[in-house]
Simulated scan of single mutants.
Amino acid sequence: MYKVEDIHDLSKRLCKTVGLPYSPVAIRVYENDTELPSNVMRPYQDKGIHYGYCQAVSLVKTKGATIALSKEDHWCWKPLMAFGLVDVERNTDVYKIILRNCGIACPDRADYFFQNKFPMMSRNDNRIIVMGPLDKVEFIPDVILAYCDSSIQIRDMIAGIKRRTGKLVESEFDYMDSCVFSFMPTHFERKFHVTFPDPGETGRACCGENEVILSIPIENLEMLVEECEAKKRHAQGRTLKQDGTIKPDFPRPQFYNELFEKWGLMTGEVSWTEEQRGYKI
C-alpha cells in the first residue's frame, strides 16, 4: 500500500493531467478517536460549531482543511444515519419521519428503498469521519472524491478505467444524498462511482452546479493516474478540435476507412493511423 508521500505525488499528477479544479478529497473512517491525525480540526470541540458533511468536504476542497466529524459535529441528518451514528429502527417515530422525507411519495416504496437501497454502516456512536486534501493528507484514505467541473475531466478518467480494467463505471443516481452515495458504494464494494452533488451540496456547501464527483478506491489510485497520463500522451497526435461548425465528410482515423471499405461503404480523408495513436490494443 502507499505511503503518504506517494499519495501526495499521485494527487498532484492526477490534477495536472486531468485538469481538476481542486485537490481530490481523501476520506477515512475511524472507529474511535485514538488514532486521529494530529492536524485535524474538530468543529464542535474546537470551535463550538457544526457543519453539514458536504460543507466539510467543501472546506477541504477549497481551503485545504483537514476535518474530523464525530457524531456531535454533524448538522445534517443523512450522514448520521449512513455512518451508523444514530438509531433508525423500523416502526418507530424516527423511522416515520425518515420515510416522509426520503423523496418517495408512496410509503411502501419509501420503506423498500430505505431498507434495500440506502447504504448504512453498523451502529457505532464513536465513529469519526476524517477528510483532507489528497495532496497534503497525513493519513491513508479509504475513498477519494475527485470533483470535476467539466465533463471532459470525468470522461478522461472513465476512459482510463475502461482501458485498464475492461469494465464500465456503473452507478445508480439519486437527486439527493450525494454525501452518502459518493462514499458508501465505493467503501463497501471497492468500485468507482459517479455521483451528482445534491441540492444541499450546491445550496449550502458552495458546490458548483456543473460539478460531478468520481469516487475512487484508494487501491486503484495509481492505476487511474497512470492511465490518465498515458491517454494524454497518446491524444497529443490525434486531437479533435471544436471550432463551432458542423462539417460533413470530416477526416477520420484510418481504421474507419478499413471498416467502411469492408462494409462496401465510401472511404475518405485520414486524420490519424493506429501507429499514431501511440499504443496497440
Results as ranks from 00 to 15, higher is better:
242 Q>N: 12
242 Q>C: 11
242 Q>G: 06
242 Q>A: 12
243 D>F: 06
243 D>H: 07
243 D>L: 01
243 D>M: 00
243 D>C: 04
243 D>A: 05
243 D>T: 10
243 D>K: 04
244 G>F: 02
244 G>I: 05
244 G>K: 03
244 G>Q: 04
244 G>H: 04
244 G>E: 07
245 T>A: 09
245 T>G: 02
245 T>Q: 12
245 T>M: 09
245 T>R: 06
245 T>D: 10
246 I>G: 00
246 I>Y: 04
246 I>A: 07
246 I>T: 07
247 K>L: 08
247 K>D: 09
247 K>E: 13
247 K>V: 15
247 K>W: 03
247 K>R: 15
248 P>I: 00
248 P>N: 06
248 P>T: 07
248 P>D: 10
248 P>G: 05
249 D>C: 09
249 D>G: 04
249 D>A: 09
249 D>Y: 12
249 D>T: 06
249 D>V: 05
250 F>V: 12
250 F>A: 15
250 F>E: 11
250 F>G: 09
250 F>Y: 10
250 F>I: 11
251 P>V: 01
251 P>M: 00
251 P>Q: 03
251 P>T: 04
251 P>E: 00
252 R>M: 15
252 R>G: 02
252 R>W: 01
252 R>Q: 13
252 R>A: 06
253 P>V: 01
253 P>G: 03
253 P>K: 05
253 P>E: 03
254 Q>I: 08
254 Q>M: 11
254 Q>E: 15
254 Q>F: 08
254 Q>Y: 10
254 Q>G: 06
254 Q>D: 13
255 F>Y: 14
255 F>K: 13
256 Y>C: 14
256 Y>E: 12
256 Y>R: 11
256 Y>Q: 10
256 Y>H: 15
256 Y>L: 12
257 N>A: 11
257 N>V: 06
257 N>S: 13
258 E>Y: 05
258 E>V: 06
258 E>I: 08
258 E>W: 06
259 L>D: 04
259 L>P: 00
260 F>D: 02
260 F>M: 14
261 E>S: 13
261 E>T: 09
261 E>V: 03
262 K>Q: 12
262 K>S: 11
262 K>P: 01
262 K>C: 05
262 K>W: 02
263 W>P: 02
263 W>T: 08
263 W>H: 09
263 W>A: 15
263 W>C: 12
264 G>F: 03
264 G>T: 11
264 G>M: 13
264 G>L: 10
264 G>V: 10
265 L>R: 10
265 L>W: 05
265 L>D: 05
266 M>D: 13
266 M>R: 14
266 M>L: 11
266 M>N: 13
266 M>I: 09
267 T>H: 08
267 T>C: 13
268 G>Q: 05
268 G>M: 08
268 G>T: 07
269 E>T: 14
269 E>Y: 03
269 E>S: 12
269 E>Q: 15
270 V>D: 02
270 V>R: 00
270 V>N: 00
270 V>G: 00
270 V>Q: 04
270 V>S: 01
271 S>I: 03
271 S>G: 00
271 S>R: 08
271 S>M: 04
271 S>W: 01
271 S>V: 02
271 S>E: 02
271 S>C: 05
272 W>E: 01
272 W>V: 02
272 W>G: 04
273 T>Q: 09
273 T>W: 02
273 T>E: 09
273 T>L: 10
273 T>H: 06
274 E>H: 05
274 E>S: 10
274 E>D: 11
274 E>G: 05
274 E>L: 11
274 E>Y: 04
276 Q>Y: 02
276 Q>A: 08
276 Q>H: 03
276 Q>D: 07
